[in-house]
Design a protein around this nucleic acid. Sequence first.
DNA 1: CTATGGCACGGATT
DNA 2: AATCCGTGCCATAG
Length: 474
Amino acid sequence: MLLQTQAPLTRPLTTAHLATTMSLMSLTALELREHIEAQLASNPALELVEVQRCPSCGRPIAERGPCAVCSRPPVGMPDEPIVFISPREDFYNPSGHLHAEELPSDETAAETEELPTYVLRQIAPDLAPDDRRLAAHILTSLDEDGLLTEALTEIARFHHVPLSRVEAVLRLIQRADPVGVGSPSPEEALLVQLEVLAETRPVPALADQAIRQGMEQLSKRHFAELAKLLGISTARAKEIARFISDNLNPYPARTHWGNIHQGTEAAQDVYHFPDIIISQLNDAPDSTLVVEVISPLAGRLRINSLFRQSLQMAPADKSEQWHNDLEQASLLIKCLQQRNHTIVRLIQRVTAIQRSFILHGDAHLEPLTRASLADELEVHESTISRAVSGKAVQLPNGRIVPLKKLFDRSLHIRTELCQIIAQEKRPLTDTEIAALLKKKGYKVARRTVAKYRSMEGILPAHLRQSLQNAVQVG
DNA sequence: CTATGGCACGGATT
DNA sequence: AATCCGTGCCATAG
């Protein structure tokens, strides 16, 4: 890097600024792929060689030799996860799935959003092969808010299937993440979200009525009118409105509208593909964890040996640039290796520590700070920060969560809090909850309980009681 | 008077 | 250095 600064910038290095390990570290696999592809296209010194495959299982591997899974003795120490780098082309071809299914209207699929693929991937397992056409049709007809503008009857007619089938498919889609996608209207999106929410936590009674009948008043914030409409006090109406705006999102595709909470799991930053996939070795519940770090490329990057050989023979006017290219290329490769190395070590350690969380859910999350990990791995804290930020990991249960979540200091307390409230006989005040938590070993101030509560989208005690009985949305 | 939410401060984390 | 997080204090609503 020091050398680079004084090197003449014969070529302005385009958007790709210097490939330092630092800048690479913070990139998502997806982003990194773009970066590398740009380099590949512009730098003749770089070469992509075919991916190696494990001789015994055919699993793609980045390095030579048997894959990490096969080389593993059948019964290993379950606490030590197997970590390896895996090129997964399928993850980087967002429109691939959809194209493969032969879209009814091809033109929209390509660039617009990754959203259609993201949703399709979630529901694909539950879908009869024939219904995938329908799903693809619906998903590609979404507007930028994630709502469906086309009439269901039209879709049914187009595919010559009964309306009920389209409805069934749509229902699956709506309940996928982001919850409510594909709804024909904001109202319906809200209702679906409310319904999903109601499965895991109490929601205000009449919230569904408010949405169904009082959408107009809700959006205009005319709480008094809304209250009159529903026959409740203005205060209660305000609370309902607040609950709705805090927890629901009329435009499922707009992420910035705030987090949508579902159950104990806040579905935030939902749009990405995983950078890391964690699964269990076979299906054995207590088996070793297998961690795939997604490689940004389907092959292995190296210096083109022909290019290196012909370097001496470079024409005088090109010589400087060629050297430059070579240097650039080897730097990139070096940095890439460094990045991989760090990420592998990082995730190896993290999965070991959070094993129980990965297998058994939120309640088992071990509080973990980036700093302590940095200390353990003997790298700078900021390295960990960069490595963690923006990345996502797919857990054995299929959920894709931000890697950040494994470093959440309060998640386990929050889930405990949720449980307490779920089991409470009578609405407990924050102070009482704080006491209960303390009894369980979590020392938190009453004020903090309030914070966690609102973080989880749970209403205060005096508002909980009233809706205890009338929970479910009809 | 009690339960909560807002603001803001300090210490930890990134 | 910037940001996040837990908390205490205070105003307000019930």
